[in-house]
């Protein structure tokens, strides 16, 4: 109310001095330029991150060349560094997370949009969105003290025994059950990405026009047929976008993984064995890294991680953007 009165009194004074006009012109220019430079800061931030990472990783790339990507050795004493083990760990943990996380997230999203009683819809959605905000260190500490011992005692021995005769799988699930390791990290990640993927998927499921679904139901489709033949094709881009958003998080996730991965620079055939990921490796060793080459090798991994996640997240955003435009046009 107050502001309207101010504006009105300002406008109704019939005599506006040229001085006042100029003053307002200046203020307008100042605000315009201030907001513009702030917007440019966002771009600068991205540019700064990329440039500083490239600068920091130059010594490592100069010393090891392309070999940096394909060498497993990580020896601070002899200063021989290769990023293969962390890259492998990052990819495998994220893969496990997606294998477990995607079906469950889809299930939860289908449950919320199609099966859930109306009164339960909001509480469940809210709970899932709140859980997306829980810091990763909480998942990490839980993974270390609750999940790892549980997996070590009950799940891993079972898996080892179950697959012991099967050709490929026996190698994947072999060795002593440590509790911590690549497998545990993957499971923690799948729990972490669950809220992200679910909330995006639910959002895009909600964009399907009711008429489309009702027509399908009217033709006698079962719920599953409506979901698989109407809802999913309609929202494909958005669902893939949501999955890639989750993948981007999983690839770059640091603390939850660092607690349970075991930090070992070996690529083991068994996914139950300890391993490392790029982010866990940096988190564990960066402050202890002495010598330019050591630090630089860690920063180089940061650069690799940033580029991978950038591509994944950019693809996710483009897909979601396309969906926005599609529904925007229809609305």
């Amino acid at each position: 109310m107050n502001s309207n009165a101010q504006v009105a009194s300002f406008a109704s004074s019939s005599e506006i001095s040229p001085d006042a006009l100029r003053r307002h012109g200046i203020r307008d220019t100042v605000l315009r330029n201030a907001t513009r430079s702030a917007a440019l800061t966002v771009l600068l931030l991205l540019g700064g991150v990329i440039i500083s990472l490239i600068h920091g990783s130059l010594p490592a790339f100069k010393a090891f060349g392309f070999g940096f990507f394909v060498t497993e050795t990580w020896n601070p004493v002899t200063e021989k560094f290769g990023a293969l083990a962390p890259i492998y760990g990052t990819v495998v943990t994220s893969l496990i997370a997606m294998l477990i996380g995607i079906p469950i997230s889809m299930g939860v999203a289908i449950f919320i949009t199609e099966l859930c009683p109306r009164w339960l819809k909001r509480p469940i959605s809210t709970a899932i969105e709140l859980l997306a905000g829980i810091p990763s260190i909480i998942y990490g500490i839980w993974g270390l003290f609750v999940l790892s011992p549980f997996l070590q005692k009950y799940v891993q021995p079972l898996l080892i025994e179950l697959f012991s005769g099967v050709p490929v799988l026996s190698g994947m699930f072999a060795g002593p059950p440590y509790g911590i390791g690549v497998f545990t990290a993957g499971i923690i990640l799948s729990i972490m990405v669950l809220p992200y993927i679910t909330s995006v998927t639910r959002d895009v499921f909600e964009t399907v026009p009711a008429v489309l679904k009702e027509s399908a139901y009217g033709l006698g489709c079962t719920t599953w047929e409506v979901v698989s033949r109407v809802v999913l094709p309609y929202t494909r881009a958005g669902v893939i976008g949501g999955i890639m958003l989750g993948l981007g998080r999983a690839l770059g996730e640091t603390m939850a993984v660092t607690f349970v991965i075991g930090n070992s620079h070996r690529i083991a055939a068994s996914i139950l064995a300890p391993g490392t990921t790029i982010s866990a490796n940096i988190a564990n060793e960066f402050t202890e890294a002495d010598g330019e080459l050591y630090t630089s090798s860690l920063i180089a991994q940061g650069l690799i991680l940033f580029l991978i996640t950038f591509i994944v997240l950019a693809a996710a955003r483009l897909l979601l953007l396309r969906l926005d435009m599609q529904t925007g046009k229809k609305a």
Binding site: V49, E253, T254, G302, T309, L313
Partner: peptide, 19 residues
């Protein structure tokens, strides 16, 4: 800016630490 900002929103925070 919107596109870049959306990416920064979920970029790995450890990279910001390195920066």
């Amino acid at each position: 800016v919107r596109f870049i900002n959306d990416i920064l929103l979920s970029a790995p925070s450890i990279v910001v630490g390195l920066f």
